[in-house]
Design a protein around this nucleic acid. Structure first.
Length: 596
RNA sequence: GGUCUCGUAGCUCAGCUGGAUAGAGCAACUGCCUUCUAAGCAGUAGGUCUUUGGUUCGAAUCCAAACGGGAUCACCA
């Protein structure tokens, strides 16, 4: 039963019966009643004063009295100015809980048959993952889970940026300064090892530039003429020509990076259904360019370069192919979009990419539309804001990035410290303790990064982010652990869930009713999160649910309750909260412990 | 400069498909562990929702402008 919908229906009927005003139930908007007033749903009467011809308060009184009399769900009402607050019968809440218990799919949308591809992570293979990538990975994974819960077929894709000048930079530095170092010989994780040479390249490159400038060269020219840069360009050429030695080095270094990434992905709990590699897709777009020239939506300049004019879309002219015939970024993305569509004919294609590329994706969509591609409309750039540090923006070249592996390790260590201080894990084995630290660390980190609206730029304060109290992942995990303890105790006492019905129970405490209200909201949150691609909606939901439960937990005893039905109800209620906490956290990619 | 985006408590953020006296968490202060896990609960204090105008019965929310942050406008990716 959709309670809110039912109440809308009742209000619609009442409007008709009392005032002969015909309003479709779907048009009757109800809002949650504010805490300081009694009630669950509030109907605002102001908009109806003209059609009804009465004052807002009068309308509220009349509707309230009518509903109390005629709507079986309505227990009572009160009117404050133009606001009609409706209280719901306890029997309705009890019935709702029974329905939740019997419906294991509550909250999940019906299958839509829609295919949605979610591309996320998309790392460069020249350096390890950092904090920004974490936001990306957590977002992509979580949105995928949320879309699945909304009934879509989801394919998680990772487009690995494994070629280009930046890759050649680390390769070149490795060649010159590496002395045959390997992850095995150095004990350094593969992606970090390669990243080390990327940094080394930059260091020597800068020295060369300074040297040239000191010798009187213009800075811009020095950047181009520095020997390391010239060599890196040459290496890229050799790579594109497939020169054996260069390709071998490229393969070797990439394999190190992949081993490192795999380890990180496993640690942070994300995965992919399909990998795309830029080295395999970067030439694909050229056919699309040909197609566009053919269809006369692109044009070729005298120097041979190909352009598209998007001024009619409010955008600019955009280069699609260089004068030497090689691809640029957008060329490749045009090709990859087509390839993706062939692999998995999608209704929607999400790109989880930082907001610095907003313009790029506008252009990509516009260009594909000009080509008349059926899949262009489904392209959606899930743009997220950068993660700032208290010191400002992260700059990889200035060494102010927060490394993902290091951060995770620090979080795990903090989780260990906090847990040991509280001394709550007696009887845990080493493995169980380690597992718990990891669960808590990832819960804290993921929740911190996901609770903020993706579109917004956010601040990562290392001090605050490791907090395990208040609006945090561990707070919600803690709620689950508490309930687990209750369910264990119930089992120990031989109380079988559902064995005692609560059919004769007729009264609820306010705190109990609040919890049911939150439970009932689960599908609303799942849908809203799906419609807006916003894990933050789920995070907020989980927090509200946990808060409502903790209040109930504090105020009302379960095992001291002598009324068997009331006790049975509270255990069932607790079990449902545990379930929805677990399910909503799973939508964020966060696990919940049985004990902590 | 053009385009886009953001501006809510000391800090980090909710709220934004218009509704009541704008909410959380952190930080500060006060209570609550012989009772199911105090990683908790209850409470106090903290606000010109950047500013100005407009639309409306009603604006943090919609529109416009200004101010202030940020992104982007490469034959880079």
């Amino acid at each position: 039963m959709q309670l809110q919908h039912t109440i809308s229906q009742r209000v619609s009927e009442a409007l008709n019966a009392l005032f002969q005003v015909s309003v479709d139930a779907a048009q009757v908007s109800l809002q949650p009643t504010r805490k300081e007033f009694a009630g669950t749903y509030t109907f605002v009467t102001f908009p109806y004063t003209k059609t009804v011809g009465k004052g807002p308060e009068q309308i509220g009184q009349a509707l309230g009295a009518y509903l109390k009399e005629n709507a079986p769900e309505v227990k009572d009402f009160n009117v404050v100015k133009g606001f009609l607050n409706l209280e719901i019968q306890d029997a309705v809440w009890l019935q709702l809980l029974r329905e939740l218990i019997q419906n294991p799919d509550f909250g999940k949308g019906e299958a839509t048959g829609q295919n949605v591809m979610v591309e996320y992570s998309s790392p460069n293979t020249n350096k390890p993952l950092h904090l920004g990538h974490l936001r990306n990975n957590f977002l992509g994974y979580s949105v995928s889970q949320i879309l699945k819960a909304n009934g879509h077929n989801v394919l998680k894709a990772n487009l690995v940026n494994d070629r280009g000048i930046h890759i050649c930079k680390s390769m070149l530095a490795y060649q010159q300064f590496g002395n045959g170092e390997t992850p095995e010989s150095s004990g350094i994780k593969g992606d970090h090892l390669v990243g080390k040479y990327y940094v080394l390249f930059d260091k020597h490159y800068k020295e060369q530039i300074e040297g040239l400038v000191a010798a009187g060269m213009d800075k811009e020219e020095a950047k181009k003429k520095a020997p390391l840069m010239v060599e890196a360009q040459a290496m890229l050429q050799r790579w594109e020509q497939g020169e054996t030695e260069t390709v071998a080095l490229w393969k070797q270094m990439n394999s190190w990076v992949y081993a490192g990434f795999d380890q990180t992905y496993r640690t942070i709990g994300v995965d992919f259904d399909k990998y795309y590699y830029e080295s395999e897709t970067y030439t694909l777009g050229k056919e699309r360019v040909e197609e566009g020239l053919h269809k006369n939506v692109f044009y070729r300049k005298d120097d041979g370069s190909v352009w598209v004019d998007l001024t009619d879309e409010g955008l600019d002219q955009k280069l699609l192919l260089r004068s030497d015939g090689t691809s640029v970024y957008i060329t490749q993305d045009m090709g990859t979009a087509e390839l993706k569509y062939q692999d998995f004919p999608y209704d929607q294609s999400l790109y989880v990419v930082a907001d610095e590329q907003n313009y790029h994706f506008q252009v990509l969509k516009a260009v594909l539309k000009k080509l008349g591609k059926p899949y262009a409309e489904g392209i959606y750039h899930l743009s997220y804001g950068m993660v700032d540090l208290p010191s400002g923006k992260m700059k990889s070249r200035e060494g102010t990035v927060v490394d993902a592996d290091e951060l995770v390790a620090e979080m795990v260590d903090t989780a260990r410290q906090q847990t040991e201080e509280l001394g709550k894990i007696e009887g845990f084995t080493q493995e169980e303790a380690q597992q718990l630290y990891h669960t808590l660390a990832m819960g804290a980190l993921k929740y911190f990064l996901l609770k903020v609206d993706p579109k917004k730029r956010m601040l990562f304060n290392p001090q605050e982010s490791i907090d395990f109290r208040g609006n945090t992942g561990p707070f919600i995990q803690y709620t689950h652990a508490r309930i687990s303890a209750i369910l264990r105790k119930a089992a120990d006492m031989g109380i079988v869930a559902g064995a005692v019905s609560f059919n004769d129970l007729s009264q609820l405490h306010e705190a109990e009713q609040e919890v049911v209200t939150q439970l009932v909201n689960f599908p609303v949150a799942v849908k809203e999160a799906g419609d807006n691609y916003a894990p933050s909606v789920i995070a907020n939901y989980a927090y509200e649910l946990a808060k409502a439960y903790n209040r109930f937990y504090q105020e009302i005893s379960i095992f001291n309750e002598t009324n068997e039905q009331a006790r049975s109800f509270r255990i069932a209620l607790s079990a449902m909260v545990a379930r929805f906490v677990r399910e909503s956290m799973a939508l964020l990619g966060i696990e919940v412990p049985e004990r902590m």
